[in-house]
Nucleic acid binder design. Structure first.
Lengths: 335, 335
DNA sequence: CTGTTAGCGCGTTCAA
DNA sequence: TTGAACGCGCTAACAG
């Protein structure tokens, strides 16, 4: 059985209350007894029960994070880095991190949110990969539950978020390709319904427009954000007649999948075909050839959304309730 | 304020006790009152407080998982998949998952373990990337705290673990290269101190020995498991005179880094130089060229260790207290 | 300075 | 079939 305040109380002869106060360094306890109590607590190896504290304080000092996992074999270097940022920052503020993994959009995901909120299991939630008319955000806002979103949404009300300007990023990438002389530029998009999908695609369109190039519907393919998806999408695009000379891809993983498709056709990437990505995962730099992509400071983003949420939970003033980061194009050799 | 049992009690006129029993479907409650109480609970949107339950039941229905993060930019497709396996299985058993991220070996990591255990914050812990004389395992065993390790250790006592037979896997890879005629085979290892590092290296040595090839110290390089580390290690190995014709790498990420080093020297991988990995992360298949590697069923491993831990916590009998999986070589084009 | 009382929300005796 | 009393471990308010 774990040691409780009661054990220390009986061991020292003081009351449970006094023990509690002594250990919490209240200044209305005699130095002598305080020392004695701390001494005994140490000897007995006392450690307060987190649960009991949570009940008494009516907060859990815990942040929740439901990771949308696409398919069982969910493997994404992007998420581990985001998680590291969130986790490290949470620890910095003495918060724990509760992680759930759910396939997005399904009933199970709703249950997860409902349970975490209703059971008061966590003090706040982080929402990632925002969607159109995102019911998660609508729900949390309606419940008055503290949350911060990584990504904007198209809902009518105001909520705290941090986002990377995807339109700006993709426009930079597209413009870069245009500057290099490309005219038939295809695009691989994320599934419809994801907010960043729209933003990034808009950047692509905007760049075309600004340069007097027309948007061609069939030059857009969709993928599920995995390498496999990118490969399939790229295959289709490369089979167009005439084929594109460049492909802008909305995330690195799919861009690497597109690499694969290009290699299959013995195309030299960066020469026969230009390919750009988005995210700048560490693998991008080490791919063959190194991937030209748009850098997102993902670790830092994890840090920041977590910090915002902690401030929200603690009812401290947020410096900024909405943050839009400008991403930066990293030109490497793939395009 | 959240709705509590008390609210339902006053609303229905019954006592808190009866309400509790009704909602928990005790059979000594009149069907009629049960219905009435459930009805009101629904209307009021009652949801039990997780914390209060935890305190009363003296368990948290939560599993802890401390992820060892190397450096701030911790990005590993391997961990996200493991996490998905663990998370999905935990949910299956109505367990929550508490995740901490800590740099391995440092004071902060010890604090994290000590706190989670002592504060009874979680009911059990998952330990990954086991190390020599792993103090985490020694500590948890000493405390009598439920845990399952992914990986063996070299401690004198028995504990529950699941591992992939790294020696067997690496031996297969090395033997495969030997069968293809390679004689100067180099090796890129993980940092000393990690258990799998030794196992895998032993497999390499064993294969050499079985085939009458001598083990050459300078043909072994060490890396930090990242692409960057693999690249650096490979650079050194490729500068040997005479250079190796093949490199066995102890994980995929470093193998992809080695790809990079080979490309730098304009070597055609799979032709001028053979390279193999270990893990079979999804990227392996989509790398250029596709990476020959040893498959680890990482999602399934997450599922299994989590299930083992749940059984341990519930004091159910474990079918197997130690599980050693045989990995499988996947021959692709890199070697 | 210290102890008594009370309560966080829930579940589990034991009586009635 | 129901309710009162109690305890999980801790902290806060209030006496003394």
């Amino acid at each position: 059985m774990p040691i409780t305040l009661k054990d220390i109380a009986t061991a020292t002869g003081f009351s449970v209350t006094t023990v509690s106060r002594a250990l919490n360094d209240y200044d209305d306890v005699a130095e002598e007894t305080k020392a004695r109590i701390k001494q005994v607590a140490l000897e007995l190896g006392y450690y307060p029960s987190a649960t009991a504290r949570h009940l008494q304080k009516r907060r859990t000092d815990t942040i929740g994070f439901v990771i949308p996992t696409f398919g069982p074999r969910f493997s994404d270097p992007y998420f581990s880095e985001l998680l590291a940022g969130i986790g490290n920052e949470a620890a910095e503020h003495d918060f724990d991190l509760l992680v759930s993994t759910r396939p997005p959009g399904e009933e199970k995901e709703k249950e997860a949110y409902h349970r975490l909120v209703s059971s008061r299991r966590v003090d706040g939630l982080l929402v990632v990969r925002t969607r159109q008319k995102d019911w998660r955000i609508a729900y949390l806002a309606e419940q008055g539950f503290p949350f911060v979103a990584f990504g904007r949404s198209d809902l009518a009300f105001d909520f705290p978020w941090l986002d990377v300007d995807g339109a700006c990023g993709t426009e930079q990438a597209t413009q870069h390709l245009i500057d290099r002389g490309h005219r038939r530029i295809a695009y691989i998009s994320a599934p419809d319904g994801l907010m960043f999908s729209h933003h990034r695609m808009n950047g692509y369109k905007r760049a075309l427009e600004k340069n007097g190039l027309s948007f061609v519907e069939e030059r857009v393919a969709f993928g599920d954000l995995t390498q496999r998806g990118g490969r399939q999408a790229a295959r289709r695009l490369l089979s167009l007649l005439p084929p594109p000379t460049a492909i802008v891809v909305c995330n690195d993983l799919m861009a690497l999948g597109a690499f694969k498709a290009a290699h299959e056709q013995n195309l030299v990437i960066g020469q026969d075909i230009a390919i750009t990505g988005f995210d700048d995962i560490p693998l991008a730099e080490h791919a063959y050839p190194p991937l030209t992509t748009v850098h997102q400071p993902i670790y830092h983003i994890g840090i920041t959304v977590c910090r915002m949420l902690v401030q929200l939970i603690r009812q401290e003033a947020l410096e900024e309730r909405q943050v839009l980061l400008k991403p930066q194009l990293i030109v490497r050799e793939s395009g």
